[in-house]
Amino acid sequence: MKRPALWLLGVPLLVVVMAAPLARAMIAAHATPRLQVPQGWPAPRYDFAGNPVTAAGFALGRRLFYDPILSRDGSVACGSCHQQFAAFAHLDHRVSHGIGGVNGKRNTPGLFNLAWQPDLMWDGSVHHLEMQPVAPMSNPVEMGGSLALAVDKLRRDARYPELFARAFGSPGVDSQRLLRALAQFTGTLVSADSRYDRYVQGREAFTPQEHEGLDLFRQHCAACHREPLFSDFSYRNNGLDAAPRDAGRAVISGRAEDQGRFRVPSLRNVALTAPYMHDGRYETLEQVLDHYAAGIQPSPTLDPLLAHGVPLTAGEREALLAFLDTLSDENFIHDRRFAETHD
């Protein structure tokens, strides 16, 4: 066999160099995220060792997340209420509406950094990331179906059996594969690239006002909204009502002292996830600060840290709001790997 001329080797190299920007764009859109622990963060709670993320598994999870096939009547997908531009919360919805337009009970939380969250939901009722989708799938005011129904629909679908086989290496659609594929998507939704993160890493500077806001945050808010995840994942009553309208954590724990307590939400992407509180009662962060300044309602389960509220001067409010804006992760909400695709 005759050897090809050595110079021919240069041709593919040239093609690669010329196509690099295009290739980068394609990789950004199609690469599979891996769970990487940002510097200074604790170890994740969800262990991907039992559910290794693969390109086909992640793509299947993403497809399922955006597919209303998981609801009883094919009208509601996970992505219907978890919108990427709102950091996977539901913008402008105090509570979300499920199948048949029925309203849910609590505000749709943003979805990010779930792999670090010990329990999920406002009341901590879901104890494992893989089991999370079962709750909305079977809730009559959300997707109104059941896990068994979803598996049955997927088995009879024209495309899913092949996608499941590709994702898990053998034929078969079952609930474990469905839940694990979804966890490959939801568990790799990592938001750790806000201006705050770049500031902490020394890659970006804060304005003096943002600096002041960070100081105020650490002084008044960080006891519960603990860095770097901006939550200590405890359950607290933040004084919304003198007599809680929603028992919250007490429903799960059965303990009276948990009346009106809810999970401390992460403040990452908080400027993107309006409205606020477990029932979505506040439309703006200004209203939230008003509440903490002068709206705290005393009750037996009120968190002691809020007994005297968090009064701030007008200038301090502005600074704190400026800091909270630095928690928005623009790269996360524009990451094409997490966007709905129509492949």
């Binding site: 039992g50 559910n51 009722s125 879901v126 104890h127 494992h128 990331l129 893989e130 089991m131 079962v134 709750a135 799938m137 079977s138 809730n139 059941s146 896990l147 068994a148 598996v151 079952d174 609930s175 474990q176 469905l178 839940l179 694990r180 966890a183 429903v251 799960i252």
Partner: peptide, 23 residues
């Protein structure tokens, strides 16, 4: 009970599973 998605007799699709307080 807290080990995530299971198969066989432990498949939560069998309906022997609480979804409002998972287990």
């Amino acid at each position: 009970n807290g080990a995530g998605a299971q198969t066989g007799t432990l498949d939560p699709a069998r309906g022997m599973f609480w979804t409002w307080n998972t287990g």
